[in-house]
C-alpha cells in the first residue's frame, strides 16, 4: 500500500507539501498559542477566502490573491488591534467577516469553478502542483529563516512585552513581523488543510507539545514533530480510507492532543522547587 502510494507523482508532491506545512505550522504555531492568537489564525485563514474567490473570478493566481488578503488582514488587525477601545479580537471579527462576505458574494460570479473554491475551503493537498510546491518551499524557507533569526526577541515580547519594550526591543515592529509570518503560514496551510481547518493546524500541535514539556526548546521540537506526524499520518489515512486529507490531518492532530493531555494528567503537578531561605 505504502509503495503504491509513494509511486504516484501527485502523492509525492502531497507528502512533501504536507510535511513542510506540518513543520511550519508546528514552529509558527508555538508563538500563536503563547500569544493567545488562535482566533487570529481563524481570522487570517478566513480572510484569505475573499482573496481566493477574487483570484478565481479575475483569473489571477488564487494563492497569490489569497496571500495578499491574508497579509493585508494581518496588517489591518495589527493596526486596529492597537486601538484600546477595540482590541485584537474585535479587529479580527470585523476583518475576517468582511473578507469572508466578499468571498461569498464573489462566489455567485464564479461559474463552473465551485470545485476549485471548495478545494480551498476544505483543502486538497493531492492537487498541489510543482509550481505550488516550489512556492511553498520558498515561503517556508523565508518564514523559518526570519522567525529563527528573531526567535529570542519574539519569545521575550510574547512573554513580557512591557519589559521587552523597556529593555529596548522594538516590540511593535516585532509584533507586526509575527503577524506577517502567521499570515504567510496560514496561506500555506490553506492549500493543505483548507481555510476552515488552517487555524487548527497552527494551534493543536503546539498545544499538544505544551502538555508534554515546560521547556521552550523541547516544546518547539515536539510541536514540529507532532505536526509532521499528523500531516503524514493524516495523509496516509486519507489515502487508505478515502476521506478528505485536511479533515484526516486535523482529526489525527486532535487525537494526538487527547493523548498528550492524558499523559500530562498522569504526571505529578509542578511544585515550587525548594522553600525560600530566609536571610541570615
Amino acid at each position: 500500500m505504502l509503495e503504491e502510494m509513494l509511486a504516484l507523482g501527485f502523492m509525492q508532491r502531497a507528502l512533501a507539501a504536507a510535511a513542510l506545512t506540518g513543520l511550519l505550522c508546528g514552529f509558527v504555531g508555538f508563538f500563536v498559542v503563547l500569544n493567545h492568537m488562535s482566533f487570529l489564525g481563524v481570522g487570517l485563514s478566513h480572510s484569505a477566502f475573499g482573496g481566493l474567490a477574487l483570484g478565481l473570478v479575475m483569473g489571477w493566481p488564487p494563492m497569490l490573491t489569497g496571500a495578499a488578503f491574508s497579509l493585508l488582514s494581518a496588517l489591518g488587525i495589527g493596526a486596529l488591534g492597537r486601538d484600546r477601545r477595540m482590541g485584537t479580537d474585535t479587529a479580527v471579527g470585523i476583518l475576517f467577516a468582511t473578507a469572508m462576505a466578499l468571498g461569498i458574494a464573489l462566489t455567485g460570479l464564479i461559474r463552473g469553478q465551485y470545485v476549485d473554491l471548495f478545494s480551498y475551503l476544505f483543502g486538497n493537498v493531492l492537487t498541489v502542483s510543482s509550481s505550488e510546491l516550489w512556492a511553498l518551499i520558498i515561503t517556508a524557507a523565508l518564514v523559518f529563516t526570519v522567525l529563527g533569526a528573531y526567535f529570542k526577541p519574539m519569545l521575550y515580547i510574547s512573554f513580557d512585552p512591557e519589559s521587552a519594550e523597556a529593555g529596548g526591543l522594538p516590540v511593535t515592529s516585532l509584533h507586526y513581523l509575527l503577524l506577517i509570518l502567521v499570515a504567510l503560514t496560514v496561506i500555506v496551510a490553506v492549500k493543505v488543510v483548507g481555510v476552515i481547518l488552517a487555524s487548527a493546524f497552527l494551534t493543536i500541535p503546539p498545544a499538544s507539545a505544551l502538555q508534554l514539556s515546560t521547556r521552550y526548546r523541547q516544546v518547539v521540537l515536539l510541536s514540529m514533530s507532532l505536526a509532521l506526524m499528523a500531516a503524514l499520518g493524516g495523509l496516509f489515512i486519507s489515502f487508505v480510507v478515502d476521506i478528505s486529507s485536511g479533515a484526516a490531518i486535523i482529526l489525527l492532530s486532535s487525537a494526538i492532543f487527547a493523548m498528550a493531555a492524558a499523559v500530562r494528567r498522569l504526571r505529578p503537578p509542578l511544585t515550587a522547587p525548594k522553600k525560600l531561605r530566609l536571610p541570615s
Partner: peptide, 12 residues
Amino acid sequence: IFPVTVRDVVDM
C-alpha cells in the same frame, strides 16, 4: 503556560 525556566527568563 509559558514554557520557560528561571535561567531562560534571566537570559531574556
